[in-house]
């Protein structure tokens, strides 16, 4: 597809902003936006104009607990009412590192306020530079790209679990080259059976096979908290 075509750029940007672009196409477009400034301009155009449509929505006040939870998540207060299941998104290196440090410090002292991270993984380059941070809560992996990850404009990084029983790797999803994603594992993956995680380089959209087809670039342990 020729993404330099002005007409195509207009159409894709409009579909992205309106929300009719979904799933993998949406993620691909977000990646294209990083590489093509005109796409970013188009998206900004539509956002600025179409957002006026939200003026038609009746305004409702959020509960005060939202502000409390934001403060709690930022580590500014320790919420007594915070339950252990509402930490769904990961935003960057600082937040992630802070979170992990907090966990290590807080779990023995006060399990009530500890978030329900069950496992963590840090994927590092051969020079020991952190590239991705991964947290597992229930059947979700919250992945943040935090380091200088080599950009692959026409390929994807794919995350795999290596089962303890030595059976072939199982795909856990595509890793972001920038920003963060949540990988929903559904019920098909039992993370208790993970011997290690691996990252391979694959064609755009992921390996066409059920196993890695590209080189395995990194491996790491999934550490139980």
């Amino acid at each position: 597809m020729n993404y330099q075509s002005t007409e195509l750029q207009h159409q894709l940007a409009a579909r992205f902003v309106v929300g009719s672009m979904r799933g993998l196409a949406r993620r691909r477009f977000q990646r294209l936006m990083m590489d093509i400034p005109k796409l970013r301009d188009e998206v900004a155009f539509w956002e600025e104009h179409l957002h006026e449509l939200t003026d038609t929505i009746p305004i409702q006040q959020p509960s005060e607990r939202v502000w409390q939870r934001i403060q709690s998540r930022l580590g500014w207060v320790q919420s007594k009412t915070e339950t252990t299941s509402k930490w769904p998104w990961f935003f960057g290196a600082f937040a992630s590192l802070l979170l992990i440090v907090n966990l290590v410090m807080l779990i023995p002292a006060d399990p009530v306020i500890a978030p329900s991270i069950e496992r963590v993984a840090v994927i590092q380059s051969s020079e020991a530079r952190t590239l991705w941070l991964i947290e597992q809560r229930e059947q979700r992996l919250e992945v943040a790209a935090v380091g200088a990850i080599e950009r692959l404009p026409n390929e994807d990084y794919q995350l795999w679990m290596l089962p303890v029983d030595g059976t072939p790797p199982i795909s856990l999803g595509l890793l972001p080259q920038q920003g963060d994603v949540i990988l929903d594992l559904g019920t098909r993956i039992d993370l208790a059976q993970v011997a290690a995680l691996a990252v391979s380089r694959e064609p755009l959209g992921g390996s066409p096979e059920p196993v890695p087809t590209g080189p395995v670039l990194y491996t790491t342990d999934l550490i139980r908290m």
């Binding site: 939200t54 305004i59 409702q60 959020p62 939202v66 998540r73 509402k86 769904p88 998104w89």
Partner: peptide, 26 residues
Amino acid sequence: AKLYSVSLTIVRRTDWAEEALQDTFI
């Protein structure tokens, strides 16, 4: 309030709209 209302109109559940609002401000 504006952002919460925008989210609530899309997700139609207060708990999800609150979550989206929290995530946005983080």
